[in-house]
Amino acid sequence: MYSTVQKTIKNSWIELAVRWFLGITFIYGSYYKIIEPAHFAKIIYGYYLFPDFSINLIAIVLPFLEFFAGLALILGIYPRSTALIILGMLFVFIIAISINLSRGIEFDCGCFSFSEAGYTYSVWQLLIRDIFYFVLGLHILFFDQLRRWCLMQSGSILKNTSRQKQTTA
């Protein structure tokens, strides 16, 4: 059992699948935020957590961080650092959602921009989804084998394994 898990974790095809899945998810997630930054800013406001001056800046930068992180995961550009960025974003999302869950707040401005944009996820769904993504991100971060279809190998968070392997190969 233990060795099966070990094999799965070290399987480079699994790592590739995880990387692509997260990559596509983040690019897809960034799309609406990029084309409608004003709506996204309102969603950030709706968490009632961020200072007023930061709301627009987050709405401008975060979608592109998601987009480039997703793209970098798919192309295999610095996967461990990209995973760190994604984990950082997910960590903030998870904390923000958890705080609002504990406060019992679910933002609803009663406006068309929200009802039509299809924000139909419940907060619990969002939380569980983000925790699942977080686990996938950890897998990419700690994967220490040579990664498949990777433009820029960078090893794992712990060591530049792949580079050593490439030079010794």
């Binding site: 800013a41 401008i60 592109f64 961080l65 480039f68 610095y78 461990r80 650092s81």
Partner: peptide
């Protein structure tokens, strides 16, 4: 690696926001 990725995202974000017809102000 982090600095490169972050820089690319931040610069692109502000450039696109500046030229996009849906762009927003730096503060709302």
């Amino acid at each position: 690696e982090l600095a490169l990725l972050l820089l690319l995202a931040v610069i692109t974000a502000f450039v696109v926001n500046f030229y996009s017809s849906k762009g927003i102000a730096l503060t709302g």
